[in-house]
């Protein structure tokens, strides 16, 4: 697949799926108007959607997205139980610290997804992104941990799952 066609295809697919979900019907006239609108939006916006170049469009991407979503929901649930424990304990066990971690995601879209995932998982919040360094606020930083260990502990499995559908 040509590199230039990726934004067009993905914008079109996103518009079409959104249209189908919001109208919630498969009636022919709705489908036709949705198709026309999706094409118009796609032609106007796709040349400016450089960020979508980070997507990998292939058949393996869809199960990749599903696997990522399930892992993400599991991590979110774990984060909230952890947080509930912290909030409700009498003296909160928190040792907040800013740490810097290194990511191997190349595209902006990949970094966006990774930063979002970090923000919603146990005790971490993405504060800033510089090139391949993410500045992360960690609510319970162990003493004297080095960057490599921190990176492994915070990113965890996310990069593996994300790399199936973004660069």
């Amino acid at each position: 697949m040509k590199k230039e066609s990726v934004p067009y295809i993905s914008v079109f697919l996103i518009c079409m799926v959104l249209w189908l979900m919001l109208t919630a019907t498969f009636a022919t006239d709705e489908l036709i108007s949705g198709f026309v609108i999706a094409v118009v939006v796609c032609v106007i916006t796709a040349p400016r959607m450089q960020i979508l170049n980070g997507l990998r469009l292939h058949l393996g991407a869809f199960p990749g997205v599903l696997a990522y979503l399930f892992y993400f929901l599991y991590a979110l649930l774990k984060a909230n139980l952890d947080l509930a424990k912290r909030v409700l304990s009498r003296n909160m066990h928190i040792h907040p610290q800013m740490v810097e971690i290194k990511t191997s995601m190349q595209s902006d879209l990949g970094k966006l997804f990774l930063a979002n995932s970090i923000t919603l998982t146990p005790g971490t919040l993405t504060v800033d992104v510089n090139d391949d360094k993410l500045l992360v606020h960690w609510i319970d930083c162990p003493e004297g941990a080095d960057m490599k260990k921190i990176t492994g502990e915070i990113i965890g499995q996310f990069e593996k799952y994300l790399k199936r559908f973004v660069k």
Binding site: N80, L83, A84, V87, M92, I94, P96, L120, G123, L125
Partner: peptide, 22 residues
């Protein structure tokens, strides 16, 4: 509750984001 109990702005943002999203 976490928003009230946490000591500084970053921790409050963390609690506010995660708990409210779930």
């Amino acid at each position: 509750v976490g928003l009230l109990r946490m000591p500084d702005v970053y921790n409050r943002i963390q609690v506010g984001t995660k708990a409210v999203t779930l």
